[in-house]
């Protein structure tokens, strides 16, 4: 069975029921609209409006879901060698996300958050954390399009205070 998803720019995506169920938000909406896997009529006569997701972003989300539809649910590891909560981004996911410039990554993350697709959300947040890793503040500001509102004196003071952790 298929489910119809309608984006903010009125684009209709017809996706497999299993893919639709990967989003907690969509699942809840289907339940509220009495749409069930065994009731074709309910699936055909209804569509799920997703006003916070654009066509371009939805296409990316569906591409990710297609790849992961048969995945076993996995928990985040908290026992990596540094004892930190980590999410291992698979090679496919790295490849999937690597060409997204930061703005698109943010849009995709916003969609994953809204649609409540935990795996995609974790993939992107870990990817962004990895992008930050090892960068100096001005490099981070440039990468994230952040306008620095700190004065030179404040920056100097921060550099002084953080000097102890520089290599």
């Amino acid at each position: 069975p298929n489910v119809k998803l309608v984006t903010s720019d009125n684009e209709e995506f017809v996706v497999d029921f299993r893919i639709a169920k990967m989003s907690v938000t969509v699942s809840r909406l289907m339940e509220a609209m009495n749409m069930s896997e065994t009731d074709d009529a309910s699936l055909l006569s209804n569509s799920i409006p997703l006003p916070n997701v654009t066509k371009a972003v939805m296409a990316r989300v569906i591409e990710w879901c297609e790849k992961h539809k048969n995945d076993e649910p996995k928990e985040e590891k908290e026992n990596d060698k540094r004892g930190r909560t980590t999410h291992v981004v698979s090679d496919w996911d790295k490849e999937f996300l690597k060409n997204d410039e930061f703005g698109r990554l943010c849009q995709l993350m916003g969609a994953a958050n809204y649609l409540e697709i935990k795996g995609l959300f974790n993939d992107i947040s870990q990817t962004i954390a990895n992008m930050i890793h090892g960068k100096k503040s001005d490099e981070i500001a440039e990468m994230f399009n952040i306008h620095c509102d700190l004065t030179e004196a404040e920056k100097k003071e921060i550099r002084k205070k953080t000097a102890w952790c520089e290599d």
Partner: peptide, 16 residues
């Protein structure tokens, strides 16, 4: 949550 401490220092120095 996933950003290391050293990187947190860098982040906090980007803007208020």
């Amino acid at each position: 949550k996933r950003v290391e401490f050293k990187d947190r220092l860098g982040l906090r120095a980007t803007c208020r």
